[in-house]
Design a protein around this nucleic acid. Structure first.
Lengths: 342, 342
DNA sequence: GAGCGGACTGTAATCGTTTACAATGGTTTT
DNA sequence: AAAACCATTGTAAACGATTACAGTCCGCTC
């Protein structure tokens, strides 16, 4: 079970290791007949080059690590697929790292970069601060961020335009006559929470509606959190007619709460979420949600990152700010609700 | 941005590389004061050992690759989590490989093993034949399989007891008075399809019900496939009152079809699926489904695999055949349907 | 005081590649 | 015919770690 090495091949073929290496790497400086002979030996021995040896010598692993906060959420999976779609054709391998929502795990994965196990690292909605990330970038490590702008020249970023996104939702709701619209944020540290809140306020302002702090609550991005937050919101604001949740999980919680309280959707309460996850189409009525082109974000970011590694181009800030689309469904539009009777 | 190497540390600390290495690996044969000094230098230089160098020398990567057919399905994600839970505390890293349902991709990932990029490889419901897998095992590569019994002494396997699982479902349905029960299989090559079909037949036999070939159809494990298959089944069998789908996706397809045709669930049609995926709880009525302890399967398999690598124990066949539990919900029980009004 | 053993440290080989440089032999140029 | 060149191949030095083996130094025993 001892693997044959390049030396075994060389001996068997009666040439030097250099020649075998040249054949392996498709160098032109090798005689056609020698090439043939070496290839034959390689085939007969079932030789496969040892990746570690290669990596040590070339100082490259052709591998990119993708660190996601939670492998079970579709948001992350879509991004991973996008990255894979760019990276694989360029012969880069992807390794997926699940931080299990633990900041310390995320930080642990950074050592993959430092120990040179991977050439680059993509962080999806990292918990680390911009300053922490900047420190890595300043030390010459290649990394990219998805979900926010890390604000560093050497760190390409891909993110959705949260303000635009939110204003889109607000104008939809306001257009349907809602004036008392609640906003459900995720945990306070998340940039998405902040930016979407900002967009919420801007949307109100443009429609000359007052901003009422009681209409804002936090649901921690989870279904249960959304459920609880909605209960609180409702208590505080009896006149509430619409909820904008910063993600679908919380929207689901609101949906559930309404079901239990016998509040009709969308007549008694309109609901809009973000992510347009599959499950929003399976509840009755389905939940309106904003679709983000996640795969595209992955594709763009990975492309940029690989360019950066190969071309050594430090072409300044590279931030992809990407627009998303509101998918209106039964939870916020009576018309849709009546049509879509599955 | 040049990484410091162990030699830089040695020079700076005025000792040899051997000593530094000993400090790094916690060897006892090093003077306390030297140790202190070396540690200090390591800290001040921010030295992190180069993983590639280490791997080349030790011929170990402490990494296990997990190859899944599709990263977007929860089935796979749960298994991954189980593996991670065992492997991480034992200092093994996991790399997740998404075969995107393409057999050629899966085969590509096998080279990770051959090129020594990883120490072991876990295949989740592999598309390769037992013989192909056996060839790897015979060449001394460490691999494990989840989802079926690969039938090789050196390949530990974790799988659900499909026959038991199916009979459980059948007795539930038969107990509720159903006599014309359809079986929806996945693609024919999948072992699950075959075994579950077998269980279906045994279940009928035990209840002295006839096996009617027209009551079996194939839905390719997808929602659309299940939808289409149900339409065909219904045409062929007007008296149909229950469907057992070999996974939840197909069950969802049946659920959708019934919704469109106005067939009441469970009164007009009872539905049972397998996997107990989250989404089954969000449709109305929720779909009864069999829950498999997927994380447990991952945990057991990974544990066995690591044992095998460390202890060199070739302790013969190691197959974990695991029981699952039917979760009865509204789609197959009127009682549940009436209670669970969300 | 020679011999021995223990505690610690250093030297150098090794893992499997790639690649700069040198070497070879043959052909063309001058 | 010497020089220059080309195509092809080989030698050996990296890459960054671990570790067998060989010191060195010191204190202890006989």
């Amino acid at each position: 079970m001892k693997e044959p090495t390049i030396m075994d091949v060389a001996r068997q073929a009666g040439v030097s290791v250099a020649t075998v290496s040249r054949v392996l790497n498709g160098s032109t400086l090798v005689n056609a007949s020698t090439q043939e002979k070496v290839m034959e030996v390689i085939r007969s021995m079932q030789y496969t080059p040892n990746a570690i040896g290669k990596q040590l010598r070339s100082q490259k692993t052709m591998t990119i690590a993708v660190v996601v906060p939670d492998i079970s959420i579709t948001y992350c999976v879509e991004i991973i697929k996008g990255i894979e779609n760019t990276a694989n054709p360029l012969h880069y391998k992807i390794i997926i790292c699940d931080a299990q929502n633990k900041p310390e795990k995320e930080r642990e994965f950074m050592t993959l970069l430092v120990s040179r196990t991977v050439d680059a690292l993509v962080l999806v909605t990292p918990s680390q601060t911009d300053a922490e990330l900047a420190a890595y970038a300043d030390n010459g490590y290649t990394l990219g961020v998805i979900g926010r702008d890390a604000g560093h020249d050497a760190i390409p970023c891909a993110l959705t335009d949260n303000v635009k996104l939110t204003r889109q939702v607000m104008s939809h709701l306001i257009g349907h006559g809602h004036t008392r619209i609640a906003f459900l944020s995720g945990f306070a540290t998340a940039i998405d929470s902040y930016e979407r809140l900002e967009g919420y306020m801007k949307g109100l302002q443009e429609a000359r509606l007052p901003f009422v702090p009681e209409l804002v609550d936090n649901g921690d991005f989870t279904e249960d959190g959304g459920y609880a937050a909605f209960m609180r919101l409702r208590e505080r604001n009896p006149g509430l007619t619409a909820v904008f949740a910063a993600n679908d999980e919380m929207a689901l919680g609101v949906h559930k709460a309404c079901g239990e309280l016998g509040i009709p959707i969308p007549g008694g309460m309109a609901i809009v979420g973000v992510d347009n996850s599959r499950i929003t189409n399976y509840v009755r009525p389905p939940i309106s949600s904003v679709e983000q082109p996640l795969q595209t974000m992955g594709v763009l970011l990975a492309g940029k990152l690989i360019d950066q590694m190969n071309a050594n181009e430090q072409a300044g800030r590279r931030v992809f700010k990407i627009d998303s689309t509101l998918i209106v469904k039964g939870s916020s539009s009576l018309k849709e609700a009546e049509e879509g009777q599955r």
